[in-house]
Amino acid sequence: MKKILIVDDDPNIVDYLTTLFEDNGFLTFAARNVKEAMELARKEIPDLITLDLEMPEEWGPRFYRKISQEKNLKNIPIIVISGFPGCTHAIGKAVACLQKPFDRDELLKIVKDNLK
């Protein structure tokens, strides 16, 4: 079973993504800040990460910089899901950038394409 790490500070959105991914046969972990996300990423080595940009304390791009420096984690595909337009500039290597509120089917398609 493929593992997805969800990073978002809004518990309602975490809940949404968790249910959505689990309904489609993925295993999920959720983190609501960068610190938690780093711990979980190192422990679980997920197959894919969804990342919010604006969070209290540290923001999404800092998490991206941190995992880019770790050998085991730097190749994990990242999907940015945030309220900001034009997030490609924030995280250059993201496989996709979705704006909230996102299209559910589009997200699932991107996830499945990246986890083949």
Binding site: I13, Y16, F84
Partner: peptide
């Protein structure tokens, strides 16, 4: 605030999905 509003709309989507 548009950022916050978008977040809420997403959460609302989530609620409706569930």
């Amino acid at each position: 605030m548009s950022h916050g509003i978008k977040g809420m709309l997403t959460a609302l989507d989530g609620g409706i999905y569930q």
